[in-house]
Design a protein around this nucleic acid. Structure first.
Length: 219
DNA sequence: TTTTAGATCGTCT
DNA sequence: GACGATCTAAAAT
């Protein structure tokens, strides 16, 4: 079952937490399906957030999706060759970056998508499961998520990209830490605890040992 | 194992 | 013209 509009009616921070444990589903042109469990997210808060593309309330051709209704995909190109996937929250200009997935289904398709992008074509490289989606651009390659085919999509209404509840409820602990790769935004915003991930999940892009100290388990 | 260098181009100033 | 919400391969430790 696809998540519905009301499921996404959340502030940016609430949604970053809500999305953890949910399943991102991608149906490819050849009708095969790949699924991954969201294990790591980051908030980009919009107007006040110096690390956000929408800092200062600026609306540009690139970041329009951040100002669209909650549950809209925002896919942008970074470093000239990679893409990142975000989901807009109910707060205009604020969106959640999907940073890592735990591959659940269609792993072969994911690996094929990764191999296609390799420069060393005839290499017989094998991807470990953990390497498929443990980074914001890696998961976009594995899921073939590009600006051309997945930007500004209403995830509640689309048949090629959506989010659903996991099959069974699982318990997990959420760890908070600072965001990755935003140092140039300045200390104040680079140091805010706006990254969230599932504690001890091996598919998270980068462990933060500081954040993992003194974790208290719910009783 | 950790660190470094290079790739590559759309976007915004 | 400068710069990335990154990744990979190669080099250093």
């Amino acid at each position: 079952m696809k998540l519905t509009k009301s499921n996404f009616n959340l502030s940016c921070i609430d949604m970053a937490n809500f999305l953890l444990g949910k399943i991102l589903v991608r149906k490819f042109e050849n009708n095969t399906i790949s699924k991954g469990r969201i294990v790591e997210t980051e908030c980009y808060l919009g107007g006040i957030d110096k690390a956000s593309h929408s800092y200062g309330g600026r609306v540009t051709p690139r970041n329009q999706a951040m100002f669209m209704p909650e549950g809209t995909s925002y896919v942008y190109m970074t470093y000239g060759m990679y893409y990142c996937l975000n989901i807009s929250s109910k707060e205009p200009g604020a969106a959640v970056l999907i940073r890592a997935l735990e591959p659940i289904e269609g792993l072969e398709q994911m690996e094929n998508n990764r191999l296609k992008k390799m420069k060393n074509k005839n290499s017989s490289k094998k991807f470990k499961n953990i390497e498929l989606c443990n980074g914001p651009s890696k998961l976009c390659i594995s899921m073939d998520i590009r600006k051309e085919n997945c930007n500004k999509i209403d995830l509640c209404q689309n048949d090629y990209l959506w989010i659903e509840e996991p099959g069974e409820k699982e318990n997990f602990v959420v760890v908070t830490s600072t965001r990755i790769g935003v140092a140039s935004a300045g200390e104040e915003w680079a140091n805010k605890p706006l990254r969230f991930y599932i504690y001890q999940n091996p598919h998270v892009s980068k462990r933060d040992r500081k954040a993992e100290k003194n974790v208290e388990f719910p009783t």
